[in-house]
Amino acid sequence: MQDPNAPPKPINAPGHGQPLQPAIIVYALYGAGIFIPFAALAGLIYAYVERGRDPVLDSHLNFQIATFWWGLLMMVVGFVLAFIIVGFLVWAFWIVWLVVRLVTGFQLAQANRPVSAVETFGLKAV
């Protein structure tokens, strides 16, 4: 019987390359999306297309899809509130939130580990 507290085993089998490559690509597209908005949209589409191939990959892709939709909501709320100046604070929070999610998710993908939870108000992938 396996220990339920043991860390997940890497899914990198010989001849299979980098199994989390699609997740790494989406993280990169989302990062580029800060400056080029259509890059994030391309990342969202790619994440939806690549889902369903591997449970560890799916954990990252589901995390990324949620990141896109919550980020879009924050951008819209920030735009509406920009007329009373508060929106600029929402946008600043969105940038910090996005960067932390991208960095922590990317680190997990590089280590071939799934996104098993999100800590600190949805800020950090673990």
Rank of each mutant, 00 (worst) to 15 (best):
G71L: 06
N5V: 04
G17W: 00
G31C: 11
L20N: 09
D54K: 01
G71P: 04
E50Y: 11
A66R: 15
W91E: 10
P7T: 06
A66G: 15
R51W: 05
K9S: 11
A39N: 04
A47F: 08
I65C: 12
V56H: 09
Y30D: 04
S116R: 15
A82Y: 08
A125C: 10
A39F: 07
G105F: 10
I95M: 08
V96C: 04
A28M: 07
H16G: 15
A6M: 01
A47Y: 05
P22R: 06
M75L: 15
N112T: 07
W70K: 05
A109M: 07
P10I: 12
P37T: 06
F88S: 08
L123D: 01
G33I: 03
G105H: 07
G33E: 04
G105Y: 08
F35E: 09
I84P: 08
A28Y: 04
A6V: 00
G52F: 10
G43A: 12
G87H: 02
G17D: 00
A40P: 03
P22T: 14
A66H: 14
L44A: 10
P7S: 07
R113G: 13
M74L: 05
Y46F: 15
Q107T: 07
D54W: 03
G17P: 00
V77L: 14
P8A: 11
D3W: 07
P55H: 14
F88E: 07
F106S: 12
A13M: 13
P4R: 00
Y27F: 15
E119M: 14
L73Y: 02
P22F: 14
I45C: 13
V99D: 06
W70R: 06
I65S: 10
A28P: 01
P22A: 14
T120W: 15
A92G: 03
W94F: 10
T104I: 12
Q107I: 12
I65V: 15
L89A: 15
P37Y: 03
A40H: 01
L102P: 05
A66W: 14
I25D: 10
I45Y: 11
N12Y: 01
R113P: 08
Y30W: 08
L61E: 08
V77R: 02
V56P: 05
D54A: 05
I84C: 12
R101G: 03
Q64D: 00
L98P: 01
G43P: 01
M1V: 01
H60G: 13
P37E: 04
E50P: 04
V77F: 13
W70E: 01
P37Q: 04
A82I: 05
L102T: 07
